[in-house]
């Protein structure tokens, strides 16, 4: 993992940077806005994909989250924690999308929309080990896929941000990550059922 994190999942250096960026954006510095969006767009994208939104829905949810940030900019109480604020707001947007989709698309239809794109992804991965790893990742249960996809955000998210995005206690992230990575290794070793869809509730 990248950042040195405290017990509460925060990274003091990143916090100072974040506070500085937000203050500059408030003052109308457009370079600071570009830096802020660049810094956190990967986090927002990972939240959406971790919650299995389609690309189009993910794009709308990310944009809505930026717009809500612009709207809330001057009222933000804790600019140092902008990452967690963004993760929480993004989670809410994703849940709203999923609720709206549930009203107009049947459960089966949704699975088709958000479902397994493993074959497509693999065409992009020329290296054999990469393809095998990604296949193994797609073979994990939904909870592990969700957490690991979140942790794949670039740059690596703090545990506080992951906690906000997945509505999961900070203390549970490390142990769950370890267990999910162990599961991933097991699938890699046994080469088990690469094309089997993950069964519900299987972690």
């Amino acid at each position: 993992m990248g950042p040195a994190i405290r017990g509460d999942g925060m990274d003091p250096l990143a916090e100072a940077d974040a506070r500085d960026l937000v203050e500059r954006v408030r003052d109308g510095d457009s370079d600071a806005w570009a830096a802020l969006t660049e810094r956190y767009v990967g986090l927002l994208w990972a939240v959406a994909r971790s919650m299995r939104l389609s690309e189009a829905d993910a794009a709308d949810a990310v944009q809505t989250t930026w717009l809500r940030l612009v709207e809330a900019l001057d009222g933000l109480r804790d600019p140092a924690r902008i990452g967690s604020w963004l993760a929480t707001t993004m989670r809410r947007e994703c849940l709203a999308v999923l609720r709206r989709r549930a009203r107009v698309v049947s459960a089966d239809g949704w699975d088709q929309v958000a479902g397994d794109t493993a074959a497509l992804d693999e065409a992009l991965l020329r290296r054999e080990r990469d393809a095998a790893l990604w296949r193994a990742f797609k073979g994990l249960g939904p909870r592990c896929q969700s957490l690991l996809r979140m942790l794949m955000a670039d740059p690596a998210p703090s545990y506080a941000e992951v906690s906000a995005a997945l509505d999961m206690p900070v203390g549970g992230i490390g142990p769950t990550r370890r267990r999910c990575l162990d599961n991933l290794r097991k699938i890699m070793l046994t080469g088990a059922h690469p094309f089997e869809a993950p069964s519900p509730g299987n972690v």
Partner: peptide, 25 residues
């Protein structure tokens, strides 16, 4: 985890339009 992060950046990158839209926001 770092390996997975690199692969995700390859198969599921942030679309360029998403970053452009963010800048415009």
């Amino acid at each position: 985890m770092a390996e997975l992060r690199r692969i995700a950046a390859e198969v599921d990158p942030v679309p360029p339009g998403v970053l452009e839209a963010a800048r415009a926001a």
